[in-house]
Simulated assay, not measured.
Amino acid sequence: MDPAEEIRQLRSALHEAKRQLGELGAENMQLKHELARRENDARRAYDQLRRVRNSTSWRLTAPLRRVKELL
Rank of each mutant, 00 (worst) to 15 (best):
M1Y: 14
M1T: 12
M1S: 15
D2T: 04
E5S: 15
E5Y: 07
E5P: 00
E6S: 11
L10T: 04
S12M: 09
A13K: 04
L14V: 08
L14M: 11
L14N: 12
H15W: 11
K18R: 15
R19G: 10
L21S: 11
L21I: 10
E23F: 05
L24D: 13
E27D: 10
N28R: 11
M29H: 04
M29V: 04
Q30W: 00
L31T: 01
L31K: 01
L31V: 00
H33E: 15
H33R: 13
H33Y: 11
L35G: 03
L35V: 12
A36K: 13
A36Q: 12
A36G: 06
R38F: 06
R38S: 14
D41M: 07
A42P: 00
R43F: 02
R44D: 06
R44C: 01
Y46M: 06
Y46Q: 08
Y46C: 03
D47M: 02
Q48A: 15
L49D: 10
L49P: 01
L49W: 09
R50Y: 09
R50S: 14
R51H: 12
R51Q: 14
R51E: 15
V52S: 05
N54R: 15
S57T: 02
S57P: 00
S57R: 07
W58C: 02
W58G: 02
R59I: 02
R59E: 04
R59M: 09
R59L: 05
R59K: 15
L60A: 07
L60R: 13
T61P: 00
A62K: 13
A62S: 11
A62R: 14
A62T: 10
P63H: 03
P63S: 08
L64A: 11
L64R: 12
L64W: 06
L64N: 12
R65M: 01
R65F: 01
R65N: 06
R65S: 08
R65D: 03
R66Q: 13
R66M: 08
R66K: 14
V67Q: 04
K68L: 05
K68W: 07
E69N: 11
E69H: 09
E69K: 10
L70G: 02
L70M: 06
L71P: 00
L71D: 02
